[in-house]
Write a protein that binds this DNA or RNA. Structure first.
Lengths: 191, 191
DNA sequence: GTCTATATTAAGATAGAC
DNA sequence: GTCTATCTTAATATAGAC
């Protein structure tokens, strides 16, 4: 793919993700998507094979990036707080790169058909690795003895929904956001 | 309405909310809804006037409850931490009462047609009142000087998504959840 | 209160011309 | 790579019988 131009296929994915964020997968028609790109719906099928394939591509692309990311973090020889901060940084980076894709990941995964099981598998493994980081922190004494499930839920929910908020706050620099979120999410639970 | 039986209309709202949570408003058809209730789609129209009306009813009912609730909390003569804990308790209570409606509120509000402006108005007022509680706490010194916008986002996101989590965790008692969440959300920001 | 039958509109997708 | 034309299916909703 050329550097500063997206292939037509990539353009379709990008436009679709934006529309999916606004109205959800089911409410976006192939005619909506085509109109947004200035072509007719039938022309889309020269580049993609189905609406379903567009959704799969968008969601599994991001899910795979999160999976690789958490594997790298888990493999680090660092303490729990460094790992948690790396998880926060990864969410901010991937969300800033692709906020519309993150929205589809969060809200439209249940409309995956053939790839649903694969997606659920990736998500469950991600959650387990994240929970394990928390559990290690509690065992080592780095984290206070708060309720694990509530803490896992609270942090992951905040991170997963950053797409609702990041694009509007262009004035906040990425490093400041990583610092600010780390303080708010972690300061209360550090020993 | 009789005490232990829902009117047919209420039954429709309740069933619809559950289906909306699973697949989203747009992906649920009147035939799906009717089948779930053991009748034909046409029969639904003896009780309700449109699919759109079902969505309005579900969302605005909850949004109104949140609005009354925050008005009561804002009117209390208590300190900031007590007010924040009351907000947390309200979210937990309303979500536990109606997790499916909360899902529709969060995910399907953009499909409101005639009532969209009214909904957005209620939501904006709620957010403003919540932000004002945080700002008062910072002025009075009860809260640390953390980034206001990040804190507002983080707490509200966690509370708004409780529906994803509360129904699965029946073993957690409500009071424990209020305590646990208050610790995790607030302990890091108290002075 | 529910049914069958149906009107109307719009969806995803394909064929074949240019 | 895009178009027009079209197939097939399914959506919301109404009319009128029981």
């Amino acid at each position: 793919m050329k550097l500063s131009t997206l292939s037509r296929k990539q353009e379709i994915y990008k436009t679709a993700a934006r529309l999916f964020k606004e109205k959800g997968y089911s409410a976006v028609t192939m005619r909506d998507l085509a109109a947004e790109m200035g072509i007719k719906a039938a022309s889309l099928y020269n580049h993609i094979s189905s609406k379903q394939q567009i959704l799969s591509e968008i969601i599994l692309d991001i899910a795979t990036q999160f999976t690789s990311g958490i594997d790298a973090i888990t493999g680090q020889e660092t303490n729990t707080l460094a790992k948690l901060k790396a998880v926060i940084a990864q969410h901010i980076t991937l969300t800033a790169d692709n906020p519309y894709g993150m929205a589809a990941l969060n809200n439209d995964w249940m409309h995956l058909e053939g790839k649903l099981d694969h997606y659920l598998d990736l998500r469950n493994r991600y959650e387990k690795k994240f929970r394990d980081i928390i559990l290690e922190g509690k065992e080592s004494g780095e984290l206070k003895d708060v309720n694990t499930e509530i803490l896992v839920y609270s942090i992951l929910t905040t991170l997963r929904n950053l797409y609702l908020w990041i694009p509007k706050k262009g004035e906040l620099k990425k490093d400041e956001l990583i610092e600010g979120l780390s303080i708010i999410l972690l300061q209360g639970v550090e020993s």
